[in-house]
């Protein structure tokens, strides 16, 4: 066996690429257009009165359309979080950083967002935070109109106030 023959191929790259055309639908389109206006829009279920942010157009619990639009503020509570220590090519942020579930005031569904402007060790459940938006001229129909959330100088929310949203 020659030297070239004996040299095994150790690995091969098998990249996978999926190209989708994503159409947001009525509810998500309303939400994303709100983002372009610097507003956070949700929808209230007419039966259970839960507020979905972002809205999906229907209530998963009641199975009815959620056609009541509500605006919620950019302030909320961290219900749970994780410290990310693994870098990713698709993120232009250096670890460690915190991804948190944030329950906006008046909303009944938390969503994931980045926490900045505080040390990752200081993040805790119940911490009060606010949205930091991009500059007005950079607002667009995308969740990226909110750069991240940062702590605000308020006492932590009591566990009872968000325990059903964990």
């Amino acid at each position: 066996m020659s030297e070239a023959e004996s040299e095994l191929v150790q690995s091969i790259t098998t990249p996978l690429r999926l190209e989708y055309q994503y159409t947001a639908g009525v509810a998500s389109t309303r939400f994303l257009r709100g983002m372009a206006d610097g507003k956070i829009l949700g929808q209230r279920c007419p039966q259970c009165e839960k507020v979905y942010v972002p809205p999906r157009g229907s209530c998963a619990r009641c199975g009815v359309a959620t056609d009541l639009e509500v605006q919620v503020p950019g302030t909320g509570t961290i219900t749970t979080f994780c410290v990310v220590r693994i870098p990713s090519d698709s993120l232009d942020i250096d670890p460690p950083f915190v991804a948190a579930h944030i329950l906006l005031d008046g909303a009944d569904i938390p969503f994931f967002a980045l926490i900045q402007e505080c040390h990752f060790d200081e993040v805790r459940m119940g911490m009060r935070v606010e949205a930091v938006w991009v500059d007005a001229e950079d607002l667009g129909p995308t969740f990226e109109s909110i750069r991240y959330f940062r702590p605000i100088d308020e006492p932590d929310a009591p566990f009872e106030s968000y325990k059903e949203h964990l």
Partner: peptide, 9 residues
Amino acid sequence: LLSASHIVE
């Protein structure tokens, strides 16, 4: 409705 390309790699 908003629509955009979405690529997963």
